[in-house]
């Protein structure tokens, strides 16, 4: 049975300030959705909240994943159910190598009994190494990455690739990509785009948050949503990205009577 992520009338605030104001969205395994919206419209707020960030207050609404409400679950429990977030701004963890971290993460998410894991509950080293090496190769990530400290001194683009590497290793059911293309050079956008699309299949549903259609050239979304003032105001197909590209958000704002709060 397919594991769907269903968001119903979700209201989120940050430090008492309402940011998401009644959002409905559903992403099924195997589907590709794009979420676009101006700076500050609440895209990351939504993404972080779906993963369970403690800073964001859920005022009302539901987030159902695989038939169960996940709003009371810790981030790690959501990860184990198959949710994944590629961060817009990945955090640095000094002294922790990407490989050590990923081995623990993969073991936690895939479950301890699987893969004939050893008595320490971890996926066997050799198996893990092989898999990591293969995936790094596919993503064009340098071998030395595995030994480097997590995001420590990584360039902006390297951080984003490391996020996709984690996505590939953790094999989630639904992945949220928060501006994974920002900060990437043209070739890197292609590599990330191609690798994400290679991961896409009936088992992976994706919600891509982006400002640029370039990434979407590689990962053609079937559904495009526009977030304005804390709500999805337009949903459609590919043509929406084209319209945004030529006309910007202004016509949509006017249509829905929303004033730009930045001004």
């Amino acid at each position: 049975m397919s594991k769907d992520l269903v968001i119903k009338d979700l209201h989120i605030s940050v430090q008492g300030e309402p940011i998401i104001k009644g959002l409905n969205l559903s992403v099924k395994q195997g589907e590709i959705h794009a979420l676009m919206g101006p700076n500050g419209s609440g895209k990351s707020t939504l993404a972080n909240s779906l993963m369970g960030h403690p800073l964001y207050e859920i005022d009302s609404g539901e987030v159902i994943f695989d038939g169960a409400d996940v709003l009371d679950l810790e981030p790690n429990e959501r990860a184990k159910l198959g949710l994944f977030l590629a961060f817009q701004y990945p955090t640095t963890i000094p002294g922790v190598s990407l490989a050590n971290f990923l081995r623990l993460a993969v073991s936690a998410v895939r479950g301890k009994s699987e893969n004939g894991s050893g008595n320490d509950g971890l996926i066997p080293m050799r198996e893990f190494r092989r898999e990591l090496r293969d995936k790094m190769k596919q993503l064009g990530v340098d071998d030395s990455f595995a030994r480097r400290y997590l995001n420590d001194g990584f360039s902006g683009g390297e951080k984003k690739r490391a996020e996709i590497l984690q996505l590939a290793m953790l094999e989630p059911k639904i992945a949220i990509l928060d501006e994974t293309d920002s900060g990437l050079d043209i070739d890197a956008v292609r590599i990330v785009g191609e690798s994400v699309s290679s991961l896409i299949g009936p088992d992976l549903g994706v919600l891509i948050i982006t400002h640029y259609p370039r990434l979407l050239d590689y990962i053609r979304p079937e559904f495009v949503h526009i977030l304005l003032d804390g709500r999805i105001v337009e949903s459609g197909g590919w043509e929406l990205t084209q319209m945004l590209e030529t006309e910007g958000y202004e016509p949509i704002r006017e249509k829905h009577g929303i004033t730009d709060k930045e001004e």
């Binding site: 972080n48 993963m51 369970g52 960030h53 403690p54 810790e74 981030p75 790690n76 959501r78 990860a79 184990k80 994944f84 977030l85 961060f87 990945p90 955090t91 963890i93 971290f101 990923l102 623990l104 993460a105 993969v106 936690a108 998410v109 984690q166 953790l170």
Partner: peptide, 10 residues
Amino acid sequence: FYLMSRGLSE
């Protein structure tokens, strides 16, 4: 949050 979002307990 970063580490927990990858499946690690607190």
